[in-house]
């Protein structure tokens, strides 16, 4: 879907992006992670031509982005930023309708799409006519993501979209985004400095430092084999094992059996939650239950630790 070839970009003589090669496959959820000034936002903004590389190529669906008119390109790519940037003089509905309006969809189609997106993002229909100033931070960013998805782009670029939200709202929006990505199959490139967020959401994690790619792999492979000390630091030296467990659904450690005395855990939990529950209740076996309460089997401490 996207391929960057040896892209470089300097600002005032300082290289923000210093020769990056990167491929993001269709349907992937790619997290660009690094400290401030690592070049992750610059890299993201090169994809929709908000920043032009000094050298190298950016390919979007095998076409060099320089061969496409910037406005046309951007209307095919969703764009979400940390400070949201809703148009304060437009209603929520008109904000969501921004790109379909640019693409000159007809009015009934736009209205239907706005309703559909507000439902998808769990926004009260009564908010359609509200002013962005009246929204909470979480609602505003829901509208921001809905606006980015309005014209049904295949690719969504997100620059620390949840960075300004409180932890509870952030977790809710992360889960929603993951659900929507699974349902729609969008390709997402996501900038963050929060490793937990990257591990929770991404299928591909790209660690950047001083404009270079340090490691580019799946969350599990990164946890198993961090490329260097920076990656180890980002992953957290002490709880790397726990984070790795968090990537595994409890189903993957399921074994058949029945133990009436074992406490239960829902099947959609991850292995870290299972370990935590064992530690909390001082047991070494849990019964895994389906949402309807059916007993699916057992999970043992030894299975979690064995990996």
């Amino acid at each position: 879907m996207i391929r960057l070839e040896q892209v470089r970009r300097a600002f005032n003589g300082r290289e923000a992006v210093a020769g990056v090669d990167l491929s993001v496959a269709r349907g992937a959820f790619c997290a660009l992670i690094g400290k401030s000034g690592s070049g992750k936002s610059t890299l993201l903004r090169m994809i929709n031509r908000l920043v032009e590389p000094d050298s190298g190529r950016v390919l979007f669906e095998d076409a060099d982005v320089r061969s496409l008119a910037p406005e046309q390109l951007r209307r095919r790519i969703g764009y979400v930023i940390q400070s949201v940037g809703l148009f304060p003089h437009w209603s929520v509905a008109r904000n969501i309708a921004a790109v379909p309006a640019l693409l000159q969809w007809d009015r009934p189609m736009i209205a239907a799409r706005v309703r559909e997106l507000m439902a998808l993002f769990d926004l009260d229909p009564a908010l359609a006519k509200a002013s962005p100033a009246s929204l909470s931070g979480g609602q505003a960013q829901r509208v921001g993501v809905a606006r980015a998805l309005a014209a049904d782009p295949d690719l969504l670029l997100m620059d620390e979209p949840f960075g300004a939200l409180d932890p509870v709202t952030r977790a809710t929006l992360q889960t929603e985004l993951l659900r929507i990505q699974r349902e729609t199959g969008k390709t997402i490139v996501f900038v963050t400095h929060d490793m937990d967020e990257a591990l929770k959401l991404a299928t591909q994690v790209v660690v950047l430092e001083r404009g270079r790619v340090v490691q580019d792999t799946t969350p599990d492979a990164m946890l198993a084999n961090p490329a260097d000390d920076l990656v180890r630091d980002l992953l957290g030296r002490e709880d790397r094992g726990l984070r790795r467990l968090a990537l595994r659904p409890v189903r993957s450690a399921l074994r058949p059996g029945e133990d009436p005395s074992a406490p239960t855990i829902p099947a959609d939990s991850d292995c870290r939650a299972a370990l935590s529950r064992m530690a909390e209740l001082a047991v070494s076996t849990l019964t895994v239950t389906a949402p309807d309460g059916a007993r699916l089997g057992l999970v043992h401490l030894s299975d979690l630790v064995a990996g």
């Binding site: 908000l50 406005e71 046309q72 209307r75 764009y79 400070s83 949201v84 940037g85 304060p88 640019l102």
Partner: peptide, 17 residues
């Protein structure tokens, strides 16, 4: 606000629009 301008450009508004 700069964020509003960034969003407008990023969503595909032409400079005149």
């Amino acid at each position: 606000p700069p964020a509003v301008l960034d969003a407008a450009t990023g969503l595909g508004f032409s400079p005149f629009r």
